[in-house]
């Protein structure tokens, strides 16, 4: 069971740290991270393993949003992307 975390917003110091801290707190293992900064715009996609995660997807999204104020954060099960973009 894997999920995709996406973080979009204005670039600032420590976004990756804040997000990964929350992941560590809930025991979600980070598998892969892709991030880019275009002008002042920060975009990150993170793949996490939820196998031993201590909370629900919705709860994780709430905690992330609280911790990284001002960023648009979404957490979605990877199946949704697999089914929409792969035949």
């Amino acid at each position: 069971m894997k999920a995709v975390i996406t973080v979009i917003g204005k670039d600032m110091v420590g976004i990756l740290a804040k997000v990964s801290n929350v992941c560590a707190d809930v025991n979600a293992n980070i598998m892969e991270v892709t991030q880019s900064v275009l002008q002042d715009y920060f975009a990150m996609v993170m793949l996490i393993d939820m196998e031993k995660m201590s909370t629900s997807v919705a709860e994780l999204e709430t905690r992330l949003t609280e911790n990284a104020a001002g960023m648009k954060i979404h957490v979605m099960h990877e199946d949704i992307f697999n089914s929409m973009h792969r035949i």
Binding site: V4, T6, E32, T34, A43, V45, L47, K72, H74, M76, E78, I80, F81, N82, M84, H85
Partner: peptide, 16 residues
């Protein structure tokens, strides 16, 4: 890994 453009497309379809 999943393609970043695909992920962003899905998110903007749902959010926007």
């Amino acid at each position: 890994m999943l393609n970043m453009a695909d992920i962003m497309e899905t998110i903007s379809m749902i959010q926007d």
